[in-house]
């Protein structure tokens, strides 16, 4: 079933609200800007939102549902992004699809997408139930996104366990909503804490950034307009790493300057 050269990557987290859909939208745009023919598949049939974050909600005619029922062709259902023609969205169908959707259906859709795209990003629903299983069935690789909070890390751990048993490889980690100041004061789990606990390679680190909210308000992902905001840079860097480029990770401790930052760093020294 493997379409040579084409990749299918699941974007999942376990816990809801940690930034799966935002990451999918921004990576979709960033990858497309790098010349990759990119498809984003909204696999969250219950609570779809990827269309909204990409600003494509008014242009949906058909969805994955019609494609599966063979009442339309794939290219009729795909919504091409106006400014970024390398990117297309396959919208989630009606929530009632959940009653009959099977892992094989997702495999079929993704196989179809891989025929005409270099990369297929699958936006996974929260949770570890059927929606997750369906979405994971079609993926060869995975990106797990989490925030430095106990509940998000715990849920990510459950998801990683499930991905491991499915033989999905590689699984890489994105740490989202990092607050350098809190980390410096040791009031937030450190980057190393999270990567040690989850034992995954770090694909990217996204700083907490108000611009993310502004961009979702507008339906224009940050990566679309070459924004220089911290989150925009982080998303672009993740996209470059996905394409095999070596881009150094930012160090949250270096983001802050001044005496207080220096003191914070000193206080983090491991003494025994």
């Amino acid at each position: 079933m493997t379409t040579s050269g084409s990749r299918s990557i699941l974007i999942c987290s376990g816990k809801g609200g940690v930034g799966k859909t935002t990451l999918t939208a921004n990576l979709g745009i960033a990858l497309a800007r790098q010349g990759m023919r990119t498809a984003v598949l909204d696999a969250d049939f219950g609570l779809r939102n990827l269309d909204l974050l990409l600003g494509l909600e008014n242009r949906i005619v058909y969805t994955a549902q019609e494609v599966l029922a063979e009442s339309c062709r794939l290219d009729q259902a795909l919504v091409k992004h106006k400014q970024e023609p390398n990117l297309a969205l396959l919208p989630a169908g009606n929530p009632r699809m959940l009653e009959w959707l099977k892992p094989e259906d997702m495999e079929r859709i993704v196989a179809l997408l891989r025929e005409s795209f270099d990369i297929v990003l699958i936006d996974c629903p929260a949770g570890i139930e059927d929606g997750f299983k369906n979405a994971a069935a079609a993926a060869e690789e995975a990106i797990v996104i989490t925030t430095p909070e106990v509940s998000a890390v715990r849920d990510a751990d459950r998801v990683i366990g499930l991905l491991n048993t499915r033989g999905i490889k590689p699984i890489q980690l994105v740490l989202n909503r990092v607050r350098p100041k809190m980390m410096a004061n040791q009031e937030m789990l450190a980057v190393d804490d999270v990567t040690d606990i989850l034992a995954l390679p770090l694909l990217g680190l996204v700083l907490e950034d108000e611009q993310v909210i502004v961009s979702t308000n507008r339906g224009e992902p940050l990566t679309l307009n070459g924004s220089q905001s911290p989150a925009a840079q982080a998303y672009s860097n993740i996209a470059r790493r996905i394409c095999g480029e070596e881009v150094p990770l930012i160090d949250p401790a270096k983001v802050r300057r001044g005496l207080r930052a220096k003191l914070g760093q000193l206080m983090q020294t491991k003494i025994f």
Partner: peptide, 19 residues
């Protein structure tokens, strides 16, 4: 102790059980 230290210890314990 700093709350991050507490968070790490609690997580390690709960994950050992979960896993």
């Amino acid at each position: 102790p700093a709350s991050a230290t507490t968070a790490r210890e609690r997580l390690q314990l709960v994950l050992a059980h979960d896993r």
